[in-house]
């Protein structure tokens, strides 16, 4: 049953991603992108990362794609302009790169000698501290996320908070309307 679900969601993810890339209309492409992100979230569920699946749906399929659709609507760039045709050579180069990369991936991971088939570990219910090799054991509970974020990954957690602040300031600076004259300086006298 789980195997069937894997093939189903993998197919949905890959096909909608390919449709998004080849769709001339950017709005339809964004819709296909949402389907692709939902398929990826379903693959996360199959890997028993339930918290990340929810996060994927909320952040990617929710916030990020709404932002994309809003900007597409704001700039009114739904259709590609037909006047500009891409060069034949660049299309050929892109397709060649795609074929080479996907061929490499398939030939690498279908070869049984490349990576040994490892069985999936048994999933523990509750985190019980660090394991022998200084790694947090894999659990399905969101509790282990909080435990790891405030013990092993404390510094990256704080740096991420600072990064969000920096991104917010950067967005305000970039999208601020630049005025020619400084009205504040003139009225101080």
């Amino acid at each position: 049953m789980a195997d069937l679900l894997f093939y189903l969601f993998a197919g949905i993810t890959l096909i909608s991603a390919l449709v998004m890339v080849l769709m001339p209309n950017a709005v339809n492409g964004a819709m296909c992108m949402i389907v692709s992100f939902l398929g990826t979230a379903a693959l996360f569920v199959l890997l028993e990362a339930y918290f990340l699946a929810i996060l994927q749906v909320l952040v990617y399929a929710g916030a990020v794609m709404v932002l994309f659709l809003f900007i597409i609507m704001l700039l009114d760039v739904g259709e590609d302009s037909p006047a500009v045709k891409p060069a034949k050579l660049s299309i050929f180069a892109a397709l060649t790169g795609f074929v080479i990369l996907s061929g490499l991936v398939i030939s690498l991971f279908t070869d049984p000698a490349s990576l040994p088939a490892t069985p999936a570990f048994e999933v523990a219910e509750n985190p019980t501290g660090l394991s022998a090799n200084n790694g947090i054991p894999f659990t399905t509970s969101a509790k282990s996320f909080g435990y790891s974020l405030f013990t092993k990954y404390m510094l990256p957690f704080q740096m991420t908070g600072f990064l969000l602040l920096a991104a917010m300031v950067g967005v305000i600076v970039v999208s601020k309307r630049i005025t020619e004259t400084e009205p504040e300086a003139e009225t101080t006298d």
Binding site: A17, L18, A94, V105, T110
Partner: peptide, 21 residues
């Protein structure tokens, strides 16, 4: 593991196709 890595690699290749095409 390899099946998931194939899907991830193909998704990466499709994304690269989109960036270049």
């Amino acid at each position: 593991l390899n099946a998931f890595l194939i899907i991830a690699g193909l998704l990466f290749a499709i994304g690269m196709l989109g960036v270049t095409l």
